[in-house]
Simulated assay, not measured.
Amino acid sequence: MPKRYLERLLTIDRLIKIKSTGSPKQLAERLGISESRLYEYLSFMKESGAPIVYSKERSSYYYQAAGGFDFSFKMERQNN
């Protein structure tokens, strides 16, 4: 997975958590991608279990349940 792809996923996740994505068009522009590419990211996130919903009233995506993505390497402790 390219670094830029991961960075965008984390940005989308952060904005969804704070309910500050704006409309799909605004979010795509903010990320520097097309709306169709944005929908690919959202689809990937939903397929990964994210309960993403869009609110017209809030003009933002949000999670229906608390949570978020964590894309980081975790070192395992070595048993000596």
Results as ranks from 00 to 15, higher is better:
Tyr39Phe: 14
Ala50Val: 01
Ala66Thr: 13
Asp70Thr: 12
Ile18Asp: 02
Tyr63Arg: 06
Tyr61Pro: 00
Arg30Ala: 05
Glu76Phe: 13
Ile52Asn: 03
Ser36Lys: 14
Gly49Gln: 09
Ala50Leu: 05
Pro2Met: 11
Glu76Asn: 12
Ser43Met: 08
Pro51Thr: 13
Leu27Phe: 10
Ser23Tyr: 09
Leu42Asn: 02
Glu47Thr: 09
Met1Phe: 12
Ser48Cys: 10
Lys25Trp: 07
Tyr5Cys: 07
Lys25His: 11
Lys74Met: 11
Lys19Thr: 06
Ala28Cys: 05
Arg30Leu: 07
Thr11Ile: 15
Leu27Pro: 02
Lys74Trp: 04
Ile18Glu: 07
Leu27Lys: 05
Ile18Ala: 02
Gln78Trp: 08
Glu47Ser: 15
Lys56Ala: 15
Phe71His: 04
Phe73Ala: 07
Pro2Ile: 11
Ile18Met: 04
Pro2Thr: 10
Lys25Ala: 14
Leu6His: 11
Pro2Ala: 15
Glu7Met: 15
Tyr39Glu: 12
Pro51Ile: 14
Met45Lys: 03
Phe44Arg: 06
Tyr61Ala: 00
Tyr39Met: 07
Met45Ser: 03
Glu76Asp: 10
Ile18Asn: 01
Ser60Thr: 13
Leu6Trp: 15
Leu15Ser: 06
Thr11Asp: 10
Ile12Lys: 00
Leu27Tyr: 05
Ala50Ile: 01
Leu6Lys: 15
Lys46Glu: 03
Leu9Cys: 07
Gly32Ile: 11
Arg8Ser: 06
Arg58Val: 12
Lys74Gln: 12
Glu29Arg: 07
Pro24Gln: 04
Gly22Cys: 04
